[in-house]
Design a protein around this nucleic acid. Structure first.
Length: 638
RNA sequence: GCUCACAUAGCUCAGAUGGUAGAGCACAUCCUUGGUAAGGAUGAGGUCACCGGUUCAAAUCCGGUUGUGAGCUCCA
């Protein structure tokens, strides 16, 4: 029998007999290690702990608590769930696929008789627990493609048969536990007994292979962890996230609402929400003017012919709203670029005038599919902090970098973590290969120079050009695209934009579309969850509320309130005939940063006692000092 | 758009098997003048999302529409 040379992480090399498993090797080092190991990594590739080592190489044992083990636990748990479902429903349900995902795993089932509902979860979980407790060995085997097809066809698993047929491999691997067998690449845990902490979380529809033309499957979502403590802390985190859901906080803080009669996906901003939005918009105008942008404004509707010129009519029509008056069709704008093009075109431009940076808080309407609407994060009418930069090709680099610096400054002010992605040419697109190539490499080089890590999404660009996306995370760890920088060689062409170069000839400018916050609506949605509704002082719709202890201080409280209002501070006053504790509770629930408590003591000394929303009282202070304090905080975006 | 689920007072929710509705909070009035997260009493509020059907009778059963939620697909 031949031997394999296995190098361990400490650098030592062991000779093992061919046919040995990583488990055997671990056992040779120590019983405890063997028991703790759930898988191994041979030359970077994960393999089962009890699979004969396929060759010589560097071996690393993955122990139960290693981060890589979690994915294996979840994948094996997906099989366990499928086994439980099959044992409960037999041939009424067909298995398809079940991978591990970011916070757990899912398994898609097909059935025309069984409809899963959360009421089924308990029984499935119970069966899973029994199967786990039985500590069934999980074994791997390799069989030929024909044998596998015959096997799954015999079992009535049509989806598995289709998978194998499309796989194009001569042999496939199967995993068995008890009477359950699944087509799988692995790796898996050696025994079901290693699965200890799991919970089904939801059921939803999903298309077979993600294609809406295919059959609708039922997806059971679940999660699994290495121990109950981790599972519990994950479930708590979900609970916390639900508490800061912007849809819930939006109602509780009276920021905005939606109305069935007005229409889905159309935000109705209440006074406090509209004020918050105004604060953000004012911030945006200041920041843009500071950075050399010009504020412009375009109309809400433009003739349909113009949308044909731009290509939107051909590529984006199904998302647009149209209206007709006096036999003239108009498109309600889904993007702001058209008017900006017309501004550029309104006179002859010299190369010396470039770049032109047109900024607009542009309200757009897009007919999003009904099923995708989601609070403020996905709506049909929204306002973008949109700008179009028209520049010479040699200016692209500097402009893209300028935008990225802008994004970074703003993300810092709001305290967001973000990640960047580069999206390349999609199938449905306009423009020449050369233009796409040029635009893509311009964005790529700006990204590389910025030193930011980024991912590349092939084929995910806009139809008119490649883009850099910046994504922020919401409370449920979902990523939302906010900032985006899109390079566009096409629209200037279509609109025949040009400028006079140093050589006296006409040249084509390049256009950059970019947003910093993206949609103000979406940004505010993410912002609400980010701050859990407790906005920093500079953004709080109500910054200060004046609270009197008894009617006796009403006049003085009014006077304080007036001083605050005069100083431009967003103040409220609560003179109601209620106890101080009650007023504080209300201000607290309203997440007002500062409460100014005024009783007889304060009145006599012409002072106020500020209370911060974390419950801490500040020293009694004069109104003038408090005002300067607030102004200083606001100046620093705190 | 697709799958599944849901829609009862401003909000959060009760209302087996069909017999025209209830709680807490919020709101109003009165009492209470109380120093850091809920003082007390009384009262007002709903054509049970909308349209149609079954039935002697529908919040309850059926169909459709609208809206919402979880996903899928698609996007700021």
């Amino acid at each position: 029998m031949s031997t394999l040379q296995i190098e361990l992480p400490d650098g030592s090399v062991k000779d093992v007999a061919s046919g040995s498993t990583a488990y055997d090797l671990a056992k040779g080092i120590g019983e405890g290690l063997a028991r703790q190991s759930v898988a191994a990594r041979l030359d970077g590739e994960l393999i089962d702990i009890n699979r004969p080592l396929p060759g010589s190489g560097k071996l690393e044992l993955i122990t139960q608590n290693a981060p890589e083990a979690l994915e294996i636990v979840r994948h094996s748990c997906a099989h366990l769930m499928a086994q439980a479902v099959k044992s409960l429903y037999g041939r009424d349900v067909q298995v398809t696929i079940g991978p591990a995902i970011e916070n757990g795993f899912y398994y898609d089932f097909y059935s025309d008789s069984k409809k899963f509902s959360p009421e089924d979860f308990e029984q499935i979980e119970k069966t899973m627990a029994e199967l786990a407790k039985a500590d069934q060995p999980i074994t791997r085997e390799e069989i030929s493609r024909e044998e596998a097809i015959a096997l799954f066809r015999e079992m009535g698993e049509d989806y598995k048969v289709e998978l194998i047929e499309d796989l194009g491999e001569e042999t496939v691997s199967l995993y068995r536990q008890g009477d359950f067998v699944d087509l799988c690449r692995g790796p898996h845990l050696p025994r079901t007994g290693l699965i200890k902490s799991f919970k089904l979380t939801s059921v939803a529809g999903a298309y077979w292979r993600g294609d809406e033309k295919n059959a609708m499957l039922q997806r059971l979502y679940a999660t699994a962890f290495q121990n109950n403590k981790d599972l519990k802390s994950y479930l708590n985190r979900l609970e916390e996230a639900r508490k800061r859901d912007h849809r819930k906080l939006g109602r509780e803080l009276d920021l905005f609402s939606f109305n069935e009669e007005a229409g889905a996906g159309l935000v109705i901003w209440h006074p406090k929400g509209a004020l918050l939005r105004t604060l953000i918009e004012d911030f945006e105008r200041r920041e843009h003017l500071k950075r050399g942008y010009d504020i412009v404004m375009g109309p809400q509707i433009l003739k349909t012919e113009l949308w044909q010129t731009s290509g939107h009519y051909d590529n984006y029509r199904e998302n647009m709203y149209f209206t007709e008056v006096d036999e003239q069709s108009y498109g309600i704008k889904p993007m702001n670029c058209l008017a900006h093009m017309l501004i550029f075109k309104s006179k002859i431009r010299s190369y010396r005038d470039l770049p032109q940076r047109y900024f607009e808080l542009g309200t757009v309407h897009r007919h999003e599919k009904s099923g995708v609407l989601h609070g403020l994060l996905r709506v049909r009418g929204f306002t973008q902090d949109d700008a179009h930069i028209l520049c010479r090709p040699d200016q692209i680099d500097a402009e893209v970098k300028g935008v990225m610096a802008f994004v970074q400054d703003v993300a810092k002010i709001f305290g967001f973590e973000y990640c960047m992605e580069l999206s390349t040419r999609p199938e449905k697109s306009i423009g020449s290969d050369e233009d796409w190539e040029r635009a893509t490499s311009a964005l790529m080089s700006a990204l590389k120079d910025s030193g930011q890590d980024f991912e590349v999404n092939e084929g995910d660009g806009a139809f008119y050009g490649p883009k850099i996306d910046v994504k922020l995370k919401d409370a449920l760890d979902r990523e939302w695209q906010c900032a985006t920088i899109q390079c566009d060689f096409t629209l200037p062409e279509r609109f025949d934009l040009n400028y006079v170069g140093a050589d006296g000839e006409k040249h084509r400018p390049v256009m950059l579309h970019r947003v910093i916050l993206g949609s103000i609506e979406r940004f505010i949605g993410v912002l609400i969850e980010h701050y859990a509704g407790s906005f920093p002082l500079w953004l709080s719709p109500v910054q200060v509320v004046v609270l009197n202890v008894t009617d006796n201080q009403a006049d003085y409280a009014q006077d304080v309130y007036q001083q605050l209002k005069t100083a431009g501070i967003r103040a409220d006053i609560d003179l109601r005939n209620e106890k101080l504790g009650f007023k504080i509770r209300e201000a607290q629930l309203g997440k007002v940063p500062y409460m100014l408590v005024i009783g007889d003591r304060e009145m006599e000394e012409s002072r106020v006692t500020p209370r911060f929303r974390n419950g801490k009282n500040l020293e009694p202070t004069s109104v003038a000092d408090f005002i300067s304090f607030v102004e200083e905080e606001v100046r620093h975006y705190r």
